[in-house]
Amino acid sequence: MKRIVKILLVFMLSLGTLTGCWDADLAKQRAKEAGQGDDIIIGVPVPRDFTEKNTGFLKGLELALEDINSRGVNNKKVKLEIVDDRGVFKNAVDIAQGFSENTRMTAVIGHWFSDICIPVSSIYEESGLLVVVPTVSNTELAENNYRYIFQNVPSDKKVAEHICLHAKNEGFKHMVIYYEDSSYGWNLADAFEKEAKNNGIKIVDRCSDMISEIDLRRAHDKWTALDFDAVFLALNMPEGGQFIKEFRKLDPRTPILSGDGLDVSNIAEALGGDGEGVVMATIYNPLDGRPELKEFKERYRQKYGEEPDVWAIQGYDSLQLITRAIEETDSCSPAVLADYLRNMKSMRLVAGDISFNDYGEVQGREVYKKKIVNGELKYID
């Protein structure tokens, strides 16, 4: 039902694009006006409360902005317009419309959640606004074959491949998938089920939206009868943490695997003892010895007195990606920047050397696994 509502909303937005003020003319106007004036304007729509409490994303952006503006970008400063969409679809639509109508704006970094990002991306695409997506791994985003949208995070397919291989190596034969009722949950669950089949793992059940302890108990009885030996979660936080806590009341031993939706900086603390043994995907390995990562970590620690998480790096790299493209092309035109990003051989960033394919999907990014052991996160092969 959610998906139908979103499709209808996007359809109505598309009609507005054809008949209202943000039509193809906006893209032409932006090509002339983006970057004009003293500042290069980049919009950042985020669920601010969530990102500040659970991630270092905004701190990574702040550090990148400090670095960039200390040297300037083609004799200009970068200005971030950070706006709180609160993770609410209507708010995000309003923000996207506002950003699109600002023809001096060059790019957007966001949105955070796939249920928001995927539908509102059509607004940005129609208005010719460059978008770098640092958190949404859903393959639906690239399937739209947009010109201006770039997915700077490995896809759910790649995440599923790595976690399924781990499950196979652990000897799991019968697994359950529990997913959230969102495009992220559906897509990751589908990707995992497909990869499980390829690895000889049978999915004995997949379900979502168990809203009570009774629902979970009944489901667990069913899974036990089907001889399940592990659970895969396609959930974001905080819902993922809540499920694990409830599940552990019934079952303290069955292994739990997850996509990257649980990969927030305070995950071990949030789960407490219930998190012991949980394995999750991540796109960041702090043990990587590359000098770019080492330098970033040292500067981040000096500024904030803490270790950076994956989302701090995503914030930092996403802003660096855009500004380096501006420097390389000597242009703030989103069309010029989009063509450059799609055709560049590679760019060295904190997270690694990346490029993009014809669909705007990032290439060169790795997926890793980590496990909560004795209350701490340990990276595993």
Rank of each mutant, 00 (worst) to 15 (best):
Y300F: 15
Y300S: 07
R301A: 15
R301F: 14
R301C: 09
Q302M: 14
Q302G: 09
Q302K: 15
K303Q: 14
K303P: 00
K303F: 12
Y304Q: 09
G305Q: 10
G305M: 09
E306W: 10
E306V: 11
E307M: 14
P308E: 03
P308D: 07
D309A: 11
D309V: 05
V310F: 11
V310K: 10
W311Q: 11
W311H: 15
W311L: 14
A312N: 08
A312W: 01
A312G: 14
I313Q: 01
I313R: 01
Q314N: 13
Q314S: 15
Q314P: 06
Q314D: 12
G315V: 10
Y316C: 04
Y316P: 03
Y316A: 06
D317E: 08
D317Q: 06
D317H: 03
D317F: 01
S318N: 03
L319H: 02
L319E: 00
Q320T: 09
L321P: 04
I322V: 14
I322F: 09
I322R: 06
I322W: 02
T323D: 07
T323I: 13
R324Y: 12
R324H: 14
A325W: 01
A325S: 12
I326Y: 02
I326Q: 04
I326D: 02
E327Q: 12
E328D: 13
E328W: 01
E328N: 14
E328A: 14
T329G: 06
T329C: 09
T329L: 05
T329W: 06
D330Q: 12
D330I: 04
D330Y: 09
S331L: 07
S331C: 09
S331T: 06
C332D: 02
C332I: 03
C332M: 11
S333L: 08
P334D: 04
P334F: 06
A335F: 07
A335D: 09
L337P: 03
L337M: 05
A338K: 01
A338E: 03
D339G: 11
D339P: 05
D339E: 11
Y340K: 08
L341E: 00
L341C: 06
L341V: 06
L341M: 11
L341F: 08
R342K: 13
R342N: 05
N343M: 09
M344S: 06
M344N: 09
K345H: 12
K345Y: 07
K345P: 06
K345M: 09
S346I: 07
S346T: 15
S346L: 08
M347Q: 11
M347D: 07
M347I: 15
R348H: 13
R348Q: 13
R348L: 10
R348D: 13
L349A: 05
L349N: 01
V350L: 08
V350Y: 00
V350K: 00
V350T: 10
A351R: 10
A351Q: 13
A351D: 05
G352F: 01
G352K: 02
G352W: 00
G352M: 05
D353K: 01
D353S: 12
D353W: 03
I354S: 02
S355N: 11
S355W: 03
S355H: 06
F356R: 05
N357T: 13
N357Y: 10
N357G: 14
D358N: 15
D358T: 15
D358M: 13
Y359L: 13
Y359P: 00
Y359V: 06
